[in-house]
Design a protein around this nucleic acid. Structure first.
Lengths: 253, 253
DNA sequence: TACAATGTGTGTGGTAGCGCACATACCGAA
DNA sequence: TTCGGTATGTGCGCTACCACACACATTGTA
């Protein structure tokens, strides 16, 4: 069995035309993504970007007093390090691995080359993914303002679930609390309710979702908005509003 | 006196090299931007983008139950309608004029043409501006989670002030409450405190900032983070991390 | 000058989430 | 088997904010 998953498990890499895949492949390095590792710190100059295959990375802001809040989450549908092609080279937020697995690493300059390549496929994919990321951030802001911990917990678990292979996730309540920017006790209480309802089952850092439809009902609208917009922006045939008219090849592999 | 301000009052247009300015000028139409007007609704397909010269536009999300929250704010430093070049063509949020004035309108296709032009200036400017916008959204999320209404009001007024010519803004407390996603009474109370401290003075929809340094002290860190990052991303000479090495001409006029 | 519309001040009770202090349960290592 | 670290449960007082209700003041208009 292979030590690393195929790079084409990442949706962006998979959606590239064969020629672009061939250009990138020699520069893609598989890297382990252990839980808790900080990929980059706020203000760091980004040397590499990462394409997750089966891990989840959280982008979170850490305040001066140590309190934190998750801005958005990245899994196999996206990439970590958009500041590399956006031009800033760094961001005020931290990228931390929230669920272990592996990813493919690409030097920043290679990404910029491909971004500016005559074949605009990579550019289109990156920009559309960035818009999905923006939607997620915007919805996080709304959710933080208006929704209860119970609703937010549901949203958060669902977003994670969409990026994982099965219905189980390994996360302590403490960690979840850091992501949501709330007290651990608040998560304990919310999770207790969900368990009592038979929607989830958890046990020392391991959560199993038993009734996903119920979960979606209990979540706020934010999850659905983000999911719908992400799907729209990553549908294989982009709408005519897209920059160049040249269609993408359907993925090779 | 001219009926419309010069397009070069907009920082993005001003930062373009002369050749790019000449390409765009014939397609830039001055448009009035009256307070309260909705530039585009959530889900609308964007026909035009707007470059404010002296108005402020709020991007805000309106929930199913009618509650709202501001995602970010755009003034003469930026543009409205990034979804046009990001590829989505629409967003789940609304763009509404928060402070009246005027702007220059550009057809979406013209923007895409310039975005993909061999001269990458426009592309660089747009991408860097987008990153600044992302920073603002992320910080809004953090602020909504952790800070009090008093702090957020300071942040919000400062962000608006940076986009206006003087130290006065015309906004009712009701409007501000909608932007911050809180009750009007909450804003009344916070504004009352600021007035008592002699930091601001207001009178039926007109706020005058008397002591800006105090305002900055009373604000949360979020304002400073956004300001610093925005300045960094829009400094005239981008750092080497930027996509193409070709330098921008320093702005004409 | 009357009047309605608009903008602001204030009070009362209710609740979600906080900070803190512990208690308890589980699990792996010595 | 004991023990110490880790994960979770629970209670208590506190505060910021909410929802609602209503008073009052300013402004433009008839």
């Amino acid at each position: 069995m292979p030590e690393h998953p195929s790079p084409w498990q990442n949706h962006i890499l998979a959606a590239l035309p064969a020629a672009a895949q061939e250009r990138l492949l020699p520069h893609l390095t598989p890297v382990p993504m252990p839980l808790g590792k900080v990929i980059y710190e706020a203000g760091d100059n980004l040397e590499y970007v990462y394409f997750p295959t089966d891990c989840i990375v959280s982008l979170l802001y850490v305040m001066e007093n140590g309190a934190s809040a998750e801005i958005s989450v990245v899994g196999k549908e996206g990439m970590v390090g958009i500041a590399v092609f956006m031009g800033g080279g760094s961001t005020p937020s931290r990228a931390m691995i929230q669920s272990g697995g592996s990813a493919y690493r690409l030097p920043g300059q290679r990404l910029r080359d491909e971004f500016n390549h005559q074949d605009a496929s990579m550019r289109m994919l990156m920009l559309r993914y960035t818009q999905a990321l923006i939607t997620q951030m915007a919805q996080t802001a709304v959710c933080n303002r208006h929704h209860t911990i119970d609703q937010q917990l549901c949203r958060w678990i669902l977003l994670s679930l969409d990026r994982l292979p099965d219905n189980r996730l390994s996360m302590t309540q403490e960690l979840i609390a850091n992501m949501l920017g709330v007290r651990r006790e608040g998560v304990t209480e919310a999770a207790g309710k969900l368990q009592k309802l038979g929607v989830i089952e958890y046990h020392r850092g391991h959560i199993t979702v038993l009734d996903r439809p119920a979960m979606e009902r209990l979540s706020c609208e934010c999850y659905a908005v983000v999911k719908k917009e992400t799907d729209r922006l990553q549908s294989p045939l982009p709408p005519e509003a897209t920059v160049p008219a040249r269609p993408l090849n359907s993925l090779s592999r």
